[in-house]
């Protein structure tokens, strides 16, 4: 199992051809208090860089972009009632989707933890 990071501030914990997806702690800090999360549904397919959700803070809406091609296999329903969890534990309990990865080769375009840390400075 390895965790990858995107330039759009998502993390992807990969286990075989499945993965858990969320936003990074850095992104959550920058967003401020999250008040609403719009998620897609199980079975929805998506392409890399496609929009797969929206996260809204008090001030603004930010789109969530897919880091790879894939399909949603599970949605973290708890976020609908408790969007603030994204501020408390964005890299743990407040995961957003579980997905099936369509093309594992796309993972090579993502960063590892050290790379992401350097990316956000």
């Amino acid at each position: 199992m390895a965790t990858y990071y995107s330039e759009e501030h998502e993390w992807l914990a990969v286990d075989g051809d499945t993965a858990t997806l969320g936003i990074t702690k850095h992104a959550a800090e920058q967003l401020g208090e999250v008040v609403f999360v719009e998620q897609q549904e199980v079975g929805d397919e998506f392409e890399k860089d496609g929009e797969i959700g929206v996260i809204e803070s008090v001030k603004a809406a930010s789109e969530l972009y897919a880091p790879v091609d894939g399909e949603i296999t599970e949605v973290n329903e708890a976020l609908a009632d408790n969007p603030g969890a994204l501020n408390d534990d964005p890299e743990g309990e407040a995961w957003i989707y579980k997905i099936k990865i369509a093309d594992a080769a796309q993972l090579e375009d993502l960063m590892d933890e050290a790379g992401y840390k350097a990316f956000i400075g």
Partner: peptide, 8 residues
């Protein structure tokens, strides 16, 4: 995502 939107 572009998490800086609201603060930029």
């Amino acid at each position: 995502m572009h998490p800086y939107t609201g603060l930029s």
